[in-house]
Amino acid sequence: MAASRDEVIGIPSKAFPPGISRAATRGLSIDSLVAQHYGFIWRVLRGLGLSRPDAEDATQQVFMIAARKLADIDPDRARSFLYGAALRVANNARRGLRRRREVLDNETCDEPEPESRGPEKLAQLVQARELLTQVLDRLPEKHRRVIVLAEIEQLEVPEIAALEGVPVGTAASRLRVAREKFRALLTAMREQNPFGDEP
């Protein structure tokens, strides 16, 4: 039977002995959580539409939540816990951003990561990122999430199912539909291809 959503995001079950934290018994530390999962959470938040600065803020919030709840986190489900927290933080952040879009359009920009590649290549990467974000923005939320997990994080369907708290069959079906929708949207927006005719 599939795990409930509460279980996959790390909410302790009643069966666990009271007074003894899961994390404490297994040596889970905030240092290890950050070391192992920072990149995953940051990329998920980027995939969910947050700008680089916002994704950094939101990722920090996720680990602050984890620090507060450390005693309740099941080490076997730490990534699920962080993923669930990231979804909630992203939802809050995006709700705020929608209200403030007129401000943000003028005052903040999604600055590209500093890198040594030339300006043309950099511009191409920024455009690619923008195109990806535009396509993902048009996907229903549940499809967006599975696309991010499958295509950016390259997780297998059972892993996606565990993170999403749904049966494997549901995750597989959702991913198939998500890919079809993504492809259709990208086809409609193909004139924005930043790579031109490059192989």
Partner: peptide, 14 residues
């Protein structure tokens, strides 16, 4: 990820 972001998150979480 932005340079130093992971360290900043770690310090905030600590």
């Amino acid at each position: 990820v932005p340079e130093g972001a992971q360290q900043r998150a770690l310090e905030a979480a600590r």
